[in-house]
């Protein structure tokens, strides 16, 4: 064993005199790991960098389609969504084909009137087949908007109808009329306040390190017998 130790010591001393080969070999995994980490790490600025080009053909040109268009220009949507208003369907399709838009939405004629008259209507969505994720985001977003608009109309249909009638008139609406609509809208909104402000279901992102697993629903839970 002593001989083996002597031989090992001799070799290791010789290696220590020429360590550069080993050092280069040790640098390579670190460099590779740094490059892989830089390429694949989630980036903090990615949320700001996402830009969805959406072509819109507004055939309705009424109150609700105007609201839908203005929603796209507010808050987070304004940072990530760029609307291209087109005049014809062919123009919208051409934008998608030229890859200048991720999706193309057609707001149909009489959208506002139909919705206020409780008639079913439908939006048309063209997705850019050359892209995978952004058209999907538009589709999901549009689905959320459709559900939101349907529910909001169910709740505030008489008030929205009133606002639209006021806008269509040439004369200024009376203060009493405006106050009535405002007051009835608030009353209607109060009925859903416990569910929406704050929302019952909330989405929250946390770091993996902060995650504390909660017990599964089907796990047995000790229940006290009220009769005992």
């Amino acid at each position: 064993m002593k001989t083996i130790w002597t031989l090992v010591k001799k070799d290791l001393l010789r290696d220590a005199r020429h360590p550069w080969g080993l050092i280069v070999f040790m640098i390579i995994p670190m460099l590779t790991a740094v490059i892989i980490s830089l390429v694949f790490s989630p980036r903090g600025d990615i949320r700001k960098n996402i830009q969805i080009d959406l072509a819109v053909l507004d055939r309705d040109d009424d109150l609700l389609s105007g609201v839908l268009r203005s929603v796209a220009g507010q808050g987070q949507a304004a940072e990530n969504l760029r609307l291209h208003l087109v005049e014809t369907e062919a123009e919208g399709v051409r934008l998608v084909e030229k890859r200048k838009a991720s999706a193309f939405v057609v707001l149909p004629e009489n959208l506002t009137v139909d919705l206020l008259d409780n008639k079913p209507t439908s939006l048309t969505l063209y997705k850019n087949p050359a892209e995978a994720i952004l058209p999907r985001i538009v589709e999901e977003g549009l689905l959320v908007v459709c559900i939101g608009v349907s529910e909001a109309l169910g709740l505030l249909q008489p008030q929205i109808k009133g606002i639209r009638d006021m806008m269509e008139r040439d004369e200024m609406p009376s203060s009493l009329e405006v106050a009535q609509i405002g007051s009835s809208s608030i009353e209607r909104l109060k009925t859903v306040e416990p569910y929406l402000f704050p929302p019952l279901v909330q989405f929250k992102t946390i770091d993996a390190a902060d995650y504390v697993p909660t017990p599964r629903v089907d796990e047995p839970v000790a229940v006290e017998d009220p009769n005992s």
């Binding site: 290696d15 070999f25 040790m26 995994p29 790991a33 892989i36 980490s37 694949f40």
Partner: peptide, 25 residues
């Protein structure tokens, strides 16, 4: 970046240790 580095580095370290050992052997 740290999480990704930590996920990738051990595997890379083991791979390069293999090549170092090969040269020494």
């Amino acid at each position: 970046m740290k999480d990704m580095f930590q996920a990738v580095f051990p595997g890379l370290m083991l791979m390069w240790v293999c090549f170092i050992a090969n040269g020494v052997f």
